[in-house]
Measured scan of single mutants.
Amino acid sequence: MATGGRRGAAAAPLLVAVAALLLGAAGHLYPGEVCPGMDIRNNLTRLHELENCSVIEGHLQILLMFKTRPEDFRDLSFPKLIMITDYLLLFRVYGLESLKDLFPNLTVIRGSRLFFNYALVIFEMVHLKELGLYNLMNITRGSVRIEKNNELCYLATIDWSRILDSVEDNYIVLNKDDNEECGDICPGTAKGKTNCPATVINGQFVERCWTHSHCQKVCPTICKSHGCTAEGLCCHSECLGNCSQPDDPTKCVACRNFYLDGRCVETCPPPYYHFQDWRCVNFSFCQDLHHKCKNSRRQGCHQYVIHNNKCIPECPSGYTMNSSNLLCTPCLGPCPKVCHLLEGEKTIDSVTSAQELRGCTVINGSLIINIRGGNNLAAELEANLGLIEEISGYLKIRRSYALVSLSFFRKLRLIRGETLEIGNYSFYALDNQNLRQLWDWSKHNLTITQGKLFFHYNPKLCLSEIHKMEEVSGTKGRQERNDIALKTNGDQASCENELLKFSYIRTSFDKI
């Protein structure tokens, strides 16, 4: 039985969820670079991206490699990797027998973001014989899940209580170790020597080791999670996991709180800001991140802002960003909400898709409305799209047979046209069989910064309504002859009103 693990408890099935942008060198404390989270699957090609990484700022997932063999891993080693800020997950990587050479110096898994409450997941690794993470000293947050690894031993010899604050939620089941077939031998045991430290858990006094050649490092209890030197002297209180010299914040392997210019500090002093819960960055760093993602459509890219001495992905609820200094300031009234469309555009074809934009005031991208039916549609669209004030790209209304009016965009005031449909149009209306009105132009103002209007096959939309939009939106004169079809717009509506004058002759039985 794995020490510190839980057996036999019912657990939810383990679901495996399925960018080499360097964020800056980590400095003297770390020998390499800070790398983003990685999802490495199918083959070993991307694994080489770990070569210079000291910190993975995010998670590391290595999974679904069915053609790899043990010899493929023999020359692979990433000794610079010290810390993973989120979680480490391995799933069905064939041929991998140990992690001792792959990650010989991995010391800390912070667990800032977890995989279903777990910071370390080893699942269905069919050839893994031992973990071998002999320098792993601290899992700051989260638990361990090690399950269905039929060859995995050296679990009962690990004292997880020396690595985690609590072992109650560890789930370590259905491994070879369960069948008591392992016969784990710690260093020196074969020669009758006791080389590794022994600890007591559940009444068992057991030597602690990761492999037959690597003991588990056990520091004096007084050192807590700070770690200790090879001689057993406690590291500085700002260290986490390990250090090369005692009581020196510049000799830590990793930091308990924050890293700044080669030393570990309790908090980031001005003019620095907390970033990702582990390091200090200056304003320029946060500003660069903001600008890199301002026009990016890459998933996970955030326009970072500053709030409460932190550089964070977005302002919290009730705050909006001051564009001059990136500071989050309290909103006066309802907060603006910028919604970034991942692929640059979004099609609204149902109430469900409209709900995804609920509360958005600025759309960074283009909207395509293609709704053919739905219950209580006008009210639903207004509830979900009615706060949109600005669209950076274009607005396209296409084959939306259920629409009679666009009044559900009740606050839309600006279409920038930074991206144009077919390279020309910022407003595009095609084949809307029941569209009769755009907006009530006596109450609604709309500016279209650039781009043209396109109207074709809107049989109940009168040309007068379209011409009014040209005047109000500032697009009059931009359109070419064929942009607004004269014969297919309003051709099934009563669009022309003329005053009919009647004269009559009164007659009676005795007068003409």
Rank of each mutant, 00 (worst) to 15 (best):
L81S: 00
R162Q: 14
Q303W: 06
I122G: 01
I306N: 03
H212V: 05
P197I: 13
V218D: 08
L60H: 00
S284R: 13
V93P: 00
Y87A: 01
L90Y: 01
L136Q: 05
N322L: 14
T267E: 03
L164A: 10
W210G: 06
C235F: 00
Y273P: 02
C243R: 00
K148P: 01
P104W: 00
C182L: 04
I201A: 13
G188W: 13
C235R: 00
P79I: 03
C301Q: 05
G188I: 14
I201M: 11
T250Y: 04
S324G: 10
W210Y: 13
N150L: 10
R110K: 09
Q299A: 08
Y272R: 02
Q287V: 05
L106K: 00
S77N: 13
D165Q: 06
K100Y: 08
T107P: 00
R256T: 11
L63F: 04
S112M: 15
E207A: 06
R141E: 12
L233Q: 12
P249W: 07
P334T: 12
D277R: 09
E180P: 12
C219Y: 04
N325V: 06
Y154S: 10
K310S: 07
D261F: 05
T45C: 05
T140E: 06
L155C: 13
P313V: 04
I222A: 14
G37Y: 07
T229Q: 07
R46I: 04
D75R: 03
G192R: 08
N282C: 02
N138S: 15
L99E: 00
K224G: 11
D169P: 13
N43M: 08
T320A: 08
D101G: 06
V218K: 13
S112W: 10
S213R: 07
P271D: 02
N42A: 07
K176M: 12
W210E: 12
Y134K: 00
I139L: 07
D177A: 15
S54A: 05
F205I: 06
K67H: 01
E238T: 12
V253M: 11
K129F: 07
S324Q: 08
C35D: 00
I122D: 01
L136Y: 01
Y273D: 01
K191R: 09
R74W: 04
T267L: 03
E181L: 01
Q303T: 11
C35N: 00
K191N: 14
H214R: 05
T250S: 08
R110V: 04
N149M: 01
T250E: 06
H291P: 02
G32V: 12
T250D: 02
D288R: 15
G241V: 04
N308H: 10
C153F: 01
L90N: 00
I82F: 11
V173R: 12
R74Y: 11
F91R: 05
D277S: 12
H307F: 08
L90A: 03
H226P: 04
S98V: 01
Y171A: 11
N309H: 12
V218F: 12
C196S: 11
W278S: 07
T194D: 06
I122Y: 00
V34K: 13
C328M: 02
Q276C: 03
F115S: 07
P70W: 14
D247M: 03
V34Y: 08
N170E: 05
L99I: 10
N52I: 02
Y87P: 03
D261K: 11
C255P: 00
R145M: 06
M83S: 03
I201T: 06
V265Q: 02
D261G: 12
Y134T: 02
K224M: 04
D177P: 15
L90R: 00
T45H: 09
R69W: 07
C219S: 03
I82C: 06
T85N: 03
Y118N: 03
M125P: 01
T189Y: 04
P246F: 11
E51V: 08
L88F: 09
L120G: 00
L289M: 15
F205H: 10
L289P: 04
F73V: 05
I163S: 01
V121T: 07
F116H: 02
C35W: 00
S324E: 05
C234W: 01
D288Y: 06
K80I: 05
V121I: 07
V144A: 04
I84E: 00
E33I: 09
D165Y: 14
P271R: 15
D39Q: 13
R145E: 02
L89K: 01
K251N: 05
R41P: 15
V281D: 01
V218Y: 06
I139Y: 01
F258R: 04
R110A: 08
V305K: 10
T157C: 08
H212W: 08
R162E: 14
L327E: 13
C255Q: 01
N257C: 01
M125Y: 00
V55Q: 07
L96P: 01
S225Y: 11
N325I: 00
E51C: 15
Y30V: 05
H28I: 06
R110F: 04
T107R: 02
S213K: 14
S213T: 05
E33A: 15
T157A: 10
N309P: 02
D288N: 14
G142C: 00
G262M: 07
Y273M: 15
R279W: 04
D178Q: 13
C315H: 02
Q299R: 13
